[in-house]
């Protein structure tokens, strides 16, 4: 096995062109190898020391460019992301354990392509794009184009995800990501939902996007949602999510239970996103602030 520790993007892209696979935090790659999912690749290039992958920058249009090597811990504690792209902070705050969040990266979560990834649904509702670079140049793809199946992306073998581009946040908009979990750390989403909501001047929902985690082969967006009162849109999101989900039965849940719970998560995500859009501050992660999470630490 060979391991190249790259310090520049060009070095990393050259290694990929020569057949190496990238490793950042290793939280999926190494754990997967240990569990016999896939052996470690024979040639690895470490990208965790490439400074240009670890920056968070405002774009000219008011959006955000998050380097693929930015850790979940940085995302969950970043004031700008927490205030303007809250759903992503909600998601990163739920990943694994504090140790996982310090080494695990956004790019790794996105490119691992798990249908249960926490950051995926938020990126979909933001209309984010992944920037893929290779020695030959770079391109931007939307998330729906990127993910093609469980653990599979449309990126070529020599392409590296270098950044995630988030469009500017609209006025009176808010977002939230929730998941069903059986314990409060070292957990994986049983199902999850993200919502981004933009309110009209009179407080109704003007536009809404909802995306779902762990109910299909990839993260999927709910279709057919339109504006209306928050209660109506939340109810519609619940019904549409349950209707459009194509869940499987596995160790974590039956398809029937997943279908029910994805509706609950979608409704709660819309409700929380609408509260944030209206200017209310709900602590990150919102999972700890609604439903059973509200009980956290409360004993009276």
């Amino acid at each position: 096995m060979s391991l190249l520790i790259a310090t520049t993007l060009d070095d990393a892209l050259a290694a990929l062109a020569a057949g190496a696979r990238p490793i950042a935090g290793g939280t999926d790659l190494v754990v997967g190898a240990r569990h016999g999912k896939a052996p470690l690749p024979a040639s690895l290039v470490a990208i965790d020391r490439i400074e240009s992958l670890r920056t968070i920058d405002r774009s000219a249009d008011g959006g955000l460019v998050i380097g693929a090597g930015v850790s979940h811990h940085t995302i969950e504690t970043d004031a700008t992301i927490g205030a303007e792209w809250s759903a992503l902070a909600d998601a990163s705050a739920l990943v694994g354990s504090p140790a996982t969040r310090h080494v695990g990266t956004l790019g790794g979560n996105v490119m691992n392509g798990s249908p249960a990834m926490d950051t995926g649904a938020p990126l979909v509702v933001f209309g984010a794009e992944a920037e893929l670079a290779s020695a030959a140049g770079s391109r931007r793809v939307d998330m729906a184009t990127l993910w093609v199946g469980p653990g599979r992306t449309s990126a070529a073998a020599d392409e590296l995800c270098v950044a995630i581009h988030l469009p500017a946040r609209a006025l009176r908009s808010g977002s939230a990501y929730l998941r069903l979990e059986y314990r409060r750390a070292m957990e994986i989403a049983v199902v999850g939902a993200a919502a981004a909501v933009t309110l009209t001047a009179d407080g109704a929902v003007g536009s809404v996007r909802v995306a779902l985690t762990a109910i299909a082969a990839t993260i999927v967006e709910v279709t057919g949602l339109t504006g209306g009162s928050v209660a109506d849109v939340a109810a519609a999101a619940q019904a549409a999510a349950a209707d459009q989900a194509t869940p499987i039965s596995d160790l974590r849940a039956s398809d029937r239970y997943r279908r029910h719970c994805i509706g609950v998560m979608a409704r709660r995500a819309v409700e929380a996103a609408a509260r944030r859009a209206a200017g209310e501050t709900i602590a990150i992660p919102v999972n700890r602030a609604v439903g059973i999470g509200m009980a956290a630490g409360a004993t009276s």
Binding site: E181, C261, I292, A295, A296, T299
Partner: peptide, 16 residues
Amino acid sequence: VRVKLDRDTGVARVLA
């Protein structure tokens, strides 16, 4: 044991 139940999902949490 004091328990809270999330009726929508069946998730139970032990409070104390």
